[in-house]
Design a protein around this nucleic acid. Structure first.
Lengths: 207, 207
DNA sequence: TAGATTGTTAATCGATTAACAATC
DNA sequence: TAGATTGTTAATCGATTAACAATC
């Protein structure tokens, strides 16, 4: 099975689309329905499904509930995944309060910062000093971390996460983290996203 | 010239790396230096450069300042690019206060919401009611928009933006916007990013 | 049954990598 | 000059698309 990165992103999109279709009353879907809903081709949908061993009925399409269940399995939705957020600047704070994670069975277990004025043991999501990060990750067996510190601190925070057993990192710092280990890093670079748009806007104006 | 999407993302990374290298005192770089700094290959760097007509010196590599200048040109850094933010939830607010855009010559011109308690004409970045969005975009010739509203409102906001002349959209709403026009949309889906990490963490545990 | 859709194989397309002549 | 690096062409690799037999 050679599932590439794009394939998994598409599976995620299919899942989102399926949940919407389900709420619209769909009981079964065809590969072309999902293709339309996610902007790809029906061949691509079937190909992706076959990579994950997801099968439907010839002539009858796919059962929506079955598909959702299988995708929930793929993304481990039957378990709650705990995440730590390091760095409570604008982005970190926003993520701390973000309501969208819950429905994806993701729980922010704690946040960390170096600024003592932000510490808070009693809030729903406790905020601890950075020094406690490694210990907390180990004790609570956290596997996911968000890095939302300034870029100069990012590599250092990453090292602590890596050493303590974090397996997946969402990095908002606008630098590429040095990573020889098996830790998976997804980068979100807001400046770069807008810069990228500017490129296309300029390109469109020229033509 | 067939510049693909990945190529432009890499150019953005090269630019970032170059700025860091410059601050370290680098005057010239070789394609292999940039490859190391951005995690790609030297052949890829040279290929990307050639697509943009960027040339260096055989045997002498590339001049750092020249490269930075050419990339600033590509991304229109000599102009200030105005952006509107629609939706002042957690993410919208964070972006409104985000300091990282300035150095990329991106300026948040105004924000919009439906909640009147958020309106503010006097703040550095004014906050207006959603009804004024179209008018503001047209009058100020805004080309870039950020959508950080709940998913049910996203398509509607997008339509207003499109109609008013926005050319590039950064969309945080976890839905795929219907887009037949020439507007470029970059999607950031935080749930999906974490979900994606979960997949790899689970896959790693199994093996 | 006839018609439509899946699942998979083969063909195509595009992007990355390797190789190397040009040349500083 | 000899050695090293660019710029580009050709080869490889991988992902997407097309096609179609199987079958419900």
């Amino acid at each position: 099975m050679s599932t590439n990165k794009n394939c998994i992103v598409r599976i995620s999109r299919y899942k989102n689309a399926l949940n919407r279709l389900k709420s619209l009353g769909f009981v079964k879907v065809f590969s072309s329905n999902l293709a339309d809903a996610t902007g790809t081709s029906s061949a691509q949908v079937r190909k992706d499904f076959s990579l994950f061993g997801i099968t439907g009925n010839k002539r009858g399409g796919y059962n929506v509930d079955d598909l959702i269940e299988q995708m929930n399995q793929i993304f481990g939705k039957h378990l709650v995944h705990k995440v730590v957020i390091v760095g409570l600047g604008n982005i970190g704070k926003a993520l701390l309060r973000y309501k969208g994670f819950e429905k994806e069975s993701i729980k922010v277990a704690a946040a960390f910062d170096i600024d003592s004025s932000k510490f808070n043991d009693d809030s729903i999501v406790p905020v601890y000093p950075l020094e406690k990060l490694g210990e907390f990750i180990k004790e609570n067996e956290i596997k996911l971390g968000v890095i939302s510190v300034p870029d100069v601190a990012a590599q250092q925070v990453f090292e602590i996460m890596k050493k303590s057993g974090i397996k997946g990192v969402l990095n908002f710092a606008p630098i590429s983290l040095n990573n020889e280990s098996g830790v998976v890093i997804n980068n979100i670079n807001l400046e770069m996203e807008l810069e990228n748009l500017v490129y296309y806007v300029i390109a469109a104006e020229k033509s």
